[in-house]
């Protein structure tokens, strides 16, 4: 009976739980199918409006939005625990593998975890929203004295890729870089880019014969490298857990609003629904884009990559604040304005 009571908590509070318990005890067949059936229909019952299909569609969209928010916030929170860039001998081993025998200069792009290039004030962010000039902090390095390497870039990049492989890196991509002829779309190769990963680090560097200065010594090429931190397994796990928790809470919230307005007076019902619709309208595009990027990017790259998909939310980009404000107004309207009437199905007969 205890197991049934636990399972019946999937249903909203009310006499339906006792009614179901009575039936289940009479049936006496606690099969897996029965349990899954109760879970499924219990979560549906949480939404109220049993004859409506739209309420399920709305609940799925809200759950997707709150699930995305949960994933983004969890990934952002756990990113604080990601180990910092290597230092000392460990960093020297990396820079020495890329640029052996050369004095190397390097620095972090910023002190914190993220870099906001535009450096807006908080008031400015509230007024206009953040722009897209934000990124995860990187460690950039290259040969001292201007990032110039003597020799030809092709044999040098071949040797660099081999050195990285020998040092335990996995070279994921070596591709030509340069300008593209507009007429033909053909690439006019003037350099090469390399991408390699090892443990939770990613390195990208480019060797190119094109520079914007005339100080490059003859017979040399320009080379610079960027080191990035990749999310360890626990960031991905936290994002997945945050997604599930957020989606679950969004589902419950939708059910609460739906059941509370199901038989309430017209004014709070219309106001609550309008606010909820507007909140979904302004947040859904960002949610869909973020979820798409969250799922597709790791598949495309073949590795969990820096969770850029979450920054549009955690950095307040887009309509996050407006969506949050509309959602809070909706909850307040329903909490204080809507008084649910007696439900003929789930309430005792008077």
């Amino acid at each position: 009976m205890r197991r049934y009571r636990l399972l019946l908590r999937a249903y909203p509070p009310g006499p339906r739980r006792e009614e179901l318990l009575d039936t289940l005890l009479a049936v006496g067949r606690p099969s897996v199918a029965e349990n899954l059936d109760l879970l499924r229909h219990g979560l549906r019952a949480r939404l109220g409006r049993p004859a409506s299909r739209w309420v399920t569609v709305v609940a799925v969209l809200v759950a997707l939005t709150t699930g995305y928010a949960g994933a983004a916030l969890a990934a952002r929170a756990t990113w604080n625990a990601v180990p910092d860039f290597p230092s000392g001998a460990a960093m020297a081993e990396i820079t020495g593998t890329v640029f052996p025998g050369l004095p190397v200069e390097g620095d972090r792009s910023d002190d914190g975890l993220f870099l906001d290039i535009s450096e807006q004030s908080f008031a400015g962010q509230l007024a206009s929203g953040r722009n897209e000039d934000f990124q995860y902090v990187t460690y950039d390095f290259g040969p001292a004295g201007g990032n110039y390497v003597a020799g030809r870039y092709r044999p040098w990049t071949d040797a660099a890729a081999a050195r990285l492989e020998a040092a335990g890196w996995t070279v994921r991509d070596v591709s030509p870089t340069g300008n593209t002829w507009i007429a033909t779309g053909e690439l006019d190769e003037s350099g090469r880019g390399i991408w390699a990963i090892r443990d939770d680090l990613s390195i990208e560097f480019e060797a190119s014969t094109i520079t914007n200065t005339d100080r490059m010594p003859a017979g040399s090429f320009y080379a610079s490298a960027t080191l990035m931190r990749l999310p360890p397994w626990y960031v991905t796990a936290a994002a997945a857990a945050g997604m599930l928790l957020g989606a679950f809470l969004g589902w419950l919230l939708t059910g609460w609003v739906s059941r509370r307005t199901e038989r309430s007076a017209t004014a709070p019902r219309v106001a609550g629904h309008t606010l909820a619709a507007l909140a979904l309208l302004v947040t859904l595009p960002q949610t869909l884009f973020g979820v798409f990027a969250m799922v597709v990017e790791p598949l495309r790259l073949g590795t969990p990559f820096q969770p850029f998909w979450g920054m549009s939310l955690t950095y307040g980009y887009g309509c996050v604040l407006l969506g949050l404000l509309l959602s809070l107004l909706c909850v307040a309207t329903v909490a204080f304005g809507a008084r649910p009437a007696t439900d003929p199905v789930t309430e005792p007969i008077s």
Partner: peptide
């Protein structure tokens, strides 16, 4: 199954086909 039955009863009640 009990879950299916009560979901159907709720829906049928809302549609006016069944009453308590």
């Amino acid at each position: 199954l009990a879950g299916t039955l009560y979901a159907a009863l709720d829906r049928l009640t809302a549609e006016g086909l069944v009453a308590v």
